[in-house]
Write a protein that binds this DNA or RNA. Structure first.
Lengths: 329, 329
DNA sequence: CCTGTGTGATGATACGTATAACCATTGAGG
DNA sequence: CCTCAATGGTTATACGTATCATCACACAGG
C-alpha cells in the first residue's frame, strides 16, 4: 500500500522547500517565484504524479472546495437529475466539487454541512431561517434555487406561479373556458405543486375563467382514465387540462387513449418541463420549459463570483420560461 | 465568522482530554471509557452541537469516507440517475458520501481520485488496467458496475448481452422471424449498445432467425419514421423491433404513429429499462427491466463489507433481468 | 508488603497543506 | 560606504483528528 506522493516529496525531488512547492501551485500573491524554480518544481510534480491532498488543503484553509447541493426528499425525475448534473458541470471548471444530499425535513440540516465545511450550500428545498443564520455565521455561502430566495440570501428562483399562469394563458388563448388541473399524486412535491396551482388559479381569475377542477392523477393509466372521465362528466365539461408536469401529462394522455379520446380534439393537455420524451408523445406534448440550464449556469456563476471573484452573473431574463408549442394543446 | 466547534472545545466543556472525546466518538477497541465519562462527553457534544471535521479525519486516517462514482461521458437518462441516487442512498447509512464525477476518456483517472482519497471507486465505465493497478496499490477499493469486472476486481455486471438476448427470445416466441434493431444515435453509449446488439445477434443465430436489420434512430419522430418505413419496405419486411432502450422505443412508436401504424399489429416494439413512462406509452411498452435497484444494493453492500466488515452480499440472482410484458410486443 | 494486572484516562505526535514571519542576496540611490 | 527596498527563497507553525505510548490508580494474589 504505497504512500501517496506529498508536497514534501516533490520538494526533495526539486531541491526546494515544501513551502516553495505550495507557492508554485497556488500562485500566491505577494510571493514571487523565479521562472527556473517554478519550472523545476513543475517538472518534479509531473515526474512524481503529485496531486495535492484535498483533505489537508481543506483542513488548513478551513473550508473545502465542496458545494453541497441539498435536495428535499422529492422523486428524482429526469428534470431534477439534469439540473443537478448541469450545476456540477458548471462548477467543475472552478475546481468545485458538488455533493448532493437528500434531506428529510425532520433531520437537522446542520449535521449535513458542518462536517463538510462546504464553500457554498445550494438548496432546492426551503431552508429554515435558523439553519440559514448558522451557515451565514460559519461563512458558508447560501444559494437557493427554484424556490424563492430570502432577501439576504443569494439565489435564483424560477417563479413557479408563472409556470401555472403560462399554462392557463395558452389554453385560454386557444379558446378553452373550463380547465382541469392534473395534480401530482406524490405528497413530497407539494411545495412545487401548490405554487404552480396557485398560478393557475390566479390566472383563471384574471382571465375570467372558471376555477380549475383539480384532480390528483397518479402515474398509471387507470388513475388517469378515471380523472378524464370525471372531467368530461361535469355539467360544464372540462375541455383542457393543465398537468403538474410532463409525466402527469403523459398519464392523462394514456388515460384518454384508453377511453378512445384524442388530444387536443376531445381534451387539450399541457405539461411542464419539456422532458426529452415530450416530443415523442402521441400527440406530441405542448409544454412549458423552465430552462433550468440557465438556472444551473446562474447558480454556478453566482458561487464562482464569490469564491473566484469573477463577474456577477446577469440577472436571469424574465422570458426564460417559455411555451413549447406542439400538438396536444 | 464563528470558528467551528472542535473536539478540544468539547473536551474543555466536559472536563476531559481531547483524546477521550475522540475515543468516545469512535468506540475504539482496546480503549475503555467509563459510562459516566461517556455520558458527560456526549452531553457536551450535544450542548455545543459538535460535528467532527471530515477533512481532519480524512487527513489523519489517510482516507476519506468518500465513495467516488465514475461515470463515462454518457447522457444522463432517468435510469442512470436513479442508479446513482440509489447507490448514494444505500451508502449513506454507513457514513459514506458519494461523489459522482463524469470522466472523459481523454483525461487520466488519477487526477480525479488521488486528491479525494476515496475509500472506494465505483466505475460505470471501463477502467484501464494501469489506473486500476494504481488504485489497488493506493488501497482504494475498486468496484465496477454494469460492465464486466475484471478477475481481481470486485463488482457486479449486468450482462448486457443477456438483455439483447431476452428481447429476441420474447419476439421470437411471439412468432416474429424478421427483426429490426433500433440503435441509439449517440456514439457515447457505444459500450452498452455494442454488447446489447451482440446479444441480439447471437440469439437470432441460435433461434434460427435472420440477422437483425440495424438502423440508428434518433430521439425525434422523423428519424424514427424513416427507420420504420425502411424496415417495412424490405423484401422480407421486419415485423418486430428491439430498441436500444425505452426512449428509442418511444421514438419508434412515435414514428409509427405518424405513419398511421400501430403496435404490435403492424410492428412489435420492445425496449429496455422499464422507465416509469413505459407503462404510459401508447400502446404500453413491453420492455426488459435490468433491476438496477438490486445492482445498487449489491454494490453498496460490497463496499460496506470491506469498510465495515459486514457480511458479503449474496451473489446476484441470475433472474434479476426480467421481461415486463405489456402491449407493444 | 510487594508484585502483577487490568481499567480508564492523558500527553504527545503525525497526517499534508497554506501561509506568516523571517532571512540572505543583490542592486540602486544618496 | 551605508541604507533601503526588492527579490526569491526558507523555517516554523497551525488547522482538527486519531492513535500510540504512557501513566495513575485500584485491587487481587502470593
Amino acid at each position: 500500500m504505497a504512500r501517496a506522493v506529498t508536497a514534501k516529496d516533490v520538494a526533495r525531488e526539486a531541491g526546494v522547500s515544501q513551502a516553495t512547492v505550495s507557492y508554485v501551485i497556488n500562485a500566491h500573491p505577494g510571493q514571487k517565484i523565479s521562472a527556473p524554480t517554478r519550472e523545476r518544481v513543475q517538472a518534479a510534480i509531473d515526474r512524481l504524479g503529485y496531486t495535492p491532498s484535498e483533505s489537508a488543503r481543506a483542513l488548513r484553509k478551513g473550508s473545502s472546495n465542496v458545494v453541497l447541493l441539498v435536495l428535499p426528499d422529492i422523486p428524482f425525475g429526469p428534470t431534477l437529475a439534469h439540473l443537478i448534473e448541469q450545476i456540477a458541470d458548471e462548477l467543475e471548471p472552478f475546481g468545485l466539487t458538488t455533493i448532493t444530499r437528500r434531506v428529510r425535513a425532520t433531520s437537522p440540516l446542520a449535521s449535513h454541512w458542518r462536517s463538510l465545511q462546504p464553500v457554498a450550500v445550494v438548496s432546492i428545498a426551503a431552508i429554515s431561517p435558523e439553519d440559514e443564520a448558522e451557515m451565514q455565521a460559519a461563512g458558508v455561502l447560501v444559494v437557493s434555487a427554484l424556490l424563492s430566495p430570502s432577501s439576504q440570501r443569494l439565489g435564483i428562483s424560477v417563479p413557479q406561479t408563472l409556470i401555472g399562469r403560462m399554462q392557463v394563458e395558452h389554453l385560454a388563448y386557444a379558446g378553452h373556458r373550463h380547465l382541469g388541473y392534473a395534480a401530482p399524486d406524490d405528497v413530497r412535491v407539494t411545495g412545487f405543486y401548490q405554487l404552480r396551482l396557485e398560478g393557475v388559479r390566479s390566472a383563471c381569475l384574471d382571465l375570467g375563467l372558471a376555477d380549475p377542477v383539480v384532480v390528483p392523477v397518479a402515474l398509471d393509466t387507470s388513475s388517469a382514465e378515471q380523472a378524464v372521465r370525471y372531467w368530461r362528466s361535469l355539467p360544464d365539461p372540462v375541455t383542457a387540462v393543465a398537468a403538474y408536469n410532463d409525466e402527469t401529462a403523459f398519464a392523462v394522455l394514456a388515460g384518454m387513449q384508453r377511453l378512445g379520446l384524442s388530444a387536443p380534439r376531445d381534451l387539450a393537455v399541457i405539461g411542464v418541463d419539456n422532458i426529452p420524451l415530450a416530443a415523442l408523445a402521441s400527440p406530441p406534448l405542448t409544454t412549458i420549459d423552465q430552462n433550468l440550464g440557465m438556472v444551473a449556469a446562474y447558480v454556478a456563476r453566482q458561487i464562482a463570483s464569490v469564491t473566484h471573484g469573477i463577474a456577477e452573473p446577469m440577472p436571469l431574463r424574465s422570458d426564460a420560461v417559455t411555451l413549447v408549442l406542439r400538438e396536444s394543446a
